[in-house]
Design a protein around this nucleic acid. Sequence first.
DNA 1: TTGTACGCGTTATCAT
DNA 2: ATGATAACGCGTACAA
Lengths: 348, 348
Amino acid sequence: MKDLNKSQLTISGRVTLADVAKAAGVSTSAVSRTFTPGASVAKKTRTHILKVATNLGYRPNAIARTLSTQRSRIIGLVVSYLHNQFYPTIIERLSQHLQAQGYHVLLFISGDHSGAEAETDSLVLDILQYQVDGLVLMSTTMSSRLAMHCHTLGIPVVMLNRTAPIKQVNAVSSNNYEGGRLAARFFINAGAHRISFIGGLKNASTTVERQQGFIDELLHHDISPHSQVYGNYDFHTAGQVTQSLFTTKNPPDALFVANDHMAFSVLDVLRSKLGIAVPDDVQVIGFDNVPQASWRAYYLTTVEQNAEQMVKHTITTLLDSLKSPTAEPRQIVVPVKLIERGTTWKLP
Amino acid sequence: MKDLNKSQLTISGRVTLADVAKAAGVSTSAVSRTFTPGASVAKKTRTHILKVATNLGYRPNAIARTLSTQRSRIIGLVVSYLHNQFYPTIIERLSQHLQAQGYHVLLFISGDHSGAEAETDSLVLDILQYQVDGLVLMSTTMSSRLAMHCHTLGIPVVMLNRTAPIKQVNAVSSNNYEGGRLAARFFINAGAHRISFIGGLKNASTTVERQQGFIDELLHHDISPHSQVYGNYDFHTAGQVTQSLFTTKNPPDALFVANDHMAFSVLDVLRSKLGIAVPDDVQVIGFDNVPQASWRAYYLTTVEQNAEQMVKHTITTLLDSLKSPTAEPRQIVVPVKLIERGTTWKLP
DNA sequence: TTGTACGCGTTATCAT
DNA sequence: ATGATAACGCGTACAA
């Protein structure tokens, strides 16, 4: 309350360093140092300045500081969409951790349509204009190009939940390949015969890697996949492909879906539109284990992707890159595990 | 590809207006004007400058521009948490629309614990330091104080999905009160007798208003609520209070839950831990209608909050406030409607 | 139409 | 420990 009243004295809101200096009868440098942790100011003048400053409702201007120091303490975060609950989960934790370190997150929604390639350049421009100190990329479509471009410009980049053939940029992801294998083995052990895969975008690393592990393991057991289709990471599309998959003479009896978001749509269609029982008629495995969805587990076996671990690796990688831009690029792969239907697990 | 190659010529990444001016043999103002839409530059020099600029890989520095123009084109977005799917939905659309208008979103996660009051001041400081042009508040706890403070400082503020007794700041929200009444009427018509309410945070406007409408309508029909408890907008807590609600001698037969996120937890506990059938033993109504959750509708009647409408009102309100800071504050209330169990609705 | 010069609010350098 | 002053990169009068 005190704060509020005081700042009302200066409704103008534009109190600068110079104003404080004048009012306190000191130089601007003194004021600046007062607000610079670990600078050399006499305790007495410091407290005096501090008093005058709060009295005037002064707040340092981060923009001006950025111009002067060449560091914005802003991290750009590029993401395609937020429908998949996995992303909000990540974003929340990432932002919290960064805030704790004095950084902030500037959000970029990249869209996800097929014409996205053209959009990339304009997005790059947008991002770079804001002088972000670093970049976290969770975008599906344009990650590789974007990553290389910014990396070339000397901006620390971490690709999160994405990988690319490029080994120069940092990447944190789950062991998607192994996740695919786990799914395949689960189905094989369960005695499934007609085993299908529903991917997201055909070229996205999360789809490719999960699919590859899945297929490899099937083939290793001399089973060829029943069918492989793609839902474009879209709820509606995933439902459609499911429907067409089951309106054939020989429908699958096991489905590995590339993420939970689509898996939910699949389950929905199976039950409500097709009247197919899960898991009695069809086994379904998803991927992500989005938090607080324990009630879904009764229908769904899923491959768990550990959001907290991924975020932590991302933060440390990013901050380390900020400190020593010449550091070796890191390729971090977080282990996954299969969580079986009916299993209960701790809620966060 | 051309772009990439060219910009590799200047790996340093620090190309300024002055550099371009020098290289093009013109003044800095000429360059500046070239990048200022609608400024007076000769077509010939303009194209020449543009060529030199792209050749050098020049990108305007938004930070410096901010310092000069006093407008950052950054909108601060304050939100407590992203677990409730309603928030990501809003954020995605909000950010997209703002990007289309040349604005960008700086994200602030405010946390939601009880000691949050103290956190407010430090958050305010954080936000103001970045010279945001405007502010969208979706935080549960600290909205009112924060809103007034920033409003006083002359920063356009829109409270989204929050309301406060303060009428000086813009607010966009759903008709929560009416939503509560709809829920009550539904239960009454369904012949429920022991009708309960599960709120979020006791003081949050979304809880208070929904609860008020609900209770008012019940009383209007001479029904007194069976019980009123609070899940703090938390998945786990909501489950716990549900459990305790049903381990009494006289459990409710109807539950109005203040948002979908908690409602899912309620459903989960009812089915898996308590073995209670929905809707046969208990009727459940949620609030939000989070997108792409149609498959949940078979268990849940919900009050629909129209995210797209709320976002649109928020954007126009915000942009109008930016243009004319003296404009009258707006209190926009978006209508809601009840979506009954089994109803299907369009997916986005 | 174009160029010069100053201001935006801060940090950094160099004296004192 | 403190103060004057020059950057930082860009708009924008004002003058030409």
